[in-house]
Design a protein around this nucleic acid. Structure first.
Lengths: 245, 245
DNA sequence: CGCAATATTGACCACTCTCAATGAGGGTGG
DNA sequence: CCACCCTCATTGAGAGTGGTCAATATTGCG
């Protein structure tokens, strides 16, 4: 059996194995899984992985870059559903209807692997731990969405932005990057849309947090100066349980 | 092969088969599935199916009644995640962490079947269409949550309540009840919490909708007088795709 | 019957949105 | 290389939706 760390090394190429959750698969099983993955595709900023309404054939594994998913609204605007970093899987909400419920757009030059869902399903029947893994993956997405429901339902603008920053920081750290300083690949507009706030409110909150010395903001570059205080701001909207990623 | 309608008749007792999605299983497979389901348990208003933090062993199928799921917040308040009607499955968000992320409380006298998840996983390996069914079920939950994110992120109080009422009406109709008149089993407080609004706002919106003649409200009893107008109110917040349930 | 929980309604206030203007980068073409 | 433009970000002023507080029904339950 391998744990997630050794898997990372073993399959640096198309590593489905780097997927969000610790997974225990035999080496042979891993190669079967990776064999199903298509070659990574490079995408430029602004390109779409798929659009809402498209027929569903595959899930997509982010290898590098950032992807935002969003649903177009009737009035022409959009609602950002989430931002996805390397190792994360996109398109899970399309399985039921067999067409995509949201669009997925690349925010910066990215590399994405296609994972044909039919093949995945077949494989999941043969590899019990893979089936289990995917049940867990879907469940994890549900838990994440529920956390967002709490945030959008209850939190103030400050709480939302603080929670967002802490979440992003954690995800960077989990990928081996600094959780104290990073660049946000998404625009203020996207952040606001995601958090249910106006762009201007995001700007104001960034300024306020900076004035208070909690963070330093310069354009897309964020430095977290006082994580403790930032966490305290997010606190009220935090879910009791621990979080993942 | 059986479709959902005939399954309903075949398995009136413990009908896992009445689960939210059309499912095509051989009769023999259905009995294997039902064999895994435990006897229905009657629950009284206010009882908990499980609480946030509890170890996860089973999913729960609502046979009769209504269940609300909610996550306790740090400040003692709660965020209502959803209301669940007969045929729906509760506890899917617990698979990953192997403990429940939310609490599930019965809003009226209800009947609930326990479905041991280990057994379900085993069975899903042997019955491909069952595995597929559960992937779809989880995906459907994701899509639902995303619709809620849109609602909480963008919609006004009026849009939220209108959308909620239409959703409830649809679910009643899907179960063979009237979609024009029904009783809401949840309190105004719970509705407000679910929609990210204050109780008072819910009350005011009910009154306003009634004043405009769109609905008639008497306590928990709701009559939809003008579905078209109600739909127009919900319109702006509607997701482009069609919906389920 | 009376208490407690739930709902309704009103008045006031605050958070956030909208509108508007300014500023800062980044890319393109002269 | 600079001028220009266009997008994105910031900041301010005013308005509005919904929250909070408080008082008053209404209902359900012991």
């Amino acid at each position: 059996m391998l744990d997630i760390t050794s898997i990372k090394i073993a399959c640096s190429e198309c590593s489905l194995s780097r997927l969000c959750l610790p997974m225990s698969l035999e080496e042979q099983e891993i190669s079967r899984l990776d064999a199903v993955l298509k070659r990574p595709r490079p995408l430029k900023r602004g390109e779409d992985l798929f659009q809402a309404g498209d027929a569903f054939h595959s899930l997509y594994v982010i290898r590098a870059g950032t992807v935002k998913t969003f649903t177009p609204c009737e009035d022409g605007s959009e609602q950002v559903i989430g931002f996805h970093l390397p190792g994360e899987l996109v398109g899970l909400d399309a399985i039921e209807q067999e067409r995509h419920m949201c669009s997925a757009r690349v925010l910066e030059t990215s590399s994405v692997c296609e994972l044909p869902f039919d093949r995945l399903q077949e494989l999941a029947l043969e590899i019990p731990s893979l089936q289990k893994h995917f049940f867990r993956l879907l469940s994890q997405e549900l838990a994440k969405d529920e956390t967002m429901l709490l945030l959008l339902g209850k939190a103030t603008a400050e709480e939302r932005l603080a929670t967002f920053l802490i979440n992003v920081a954690k995800r960077f750290r989990a990928r081996g990057y600094s959780d104290k300083e990073f660049n946000l690949s998404m625009s203020r507009h996207d952040i606001g849309n995601y958090l249910g706030l106006a762009v201007e409110t995001i700007s104001r909150m960034f300024s306020r947090l900076q004035d208070e010395g909690v963070i330093s903001v310069h354009r897309k570059n964020i430095v977290i100066n006082d994580l403790e205080r930032l966490a305290a701001m997010a606190h009220r909207s935090a879910r009791c349980g621990s979080d993942d990623e």
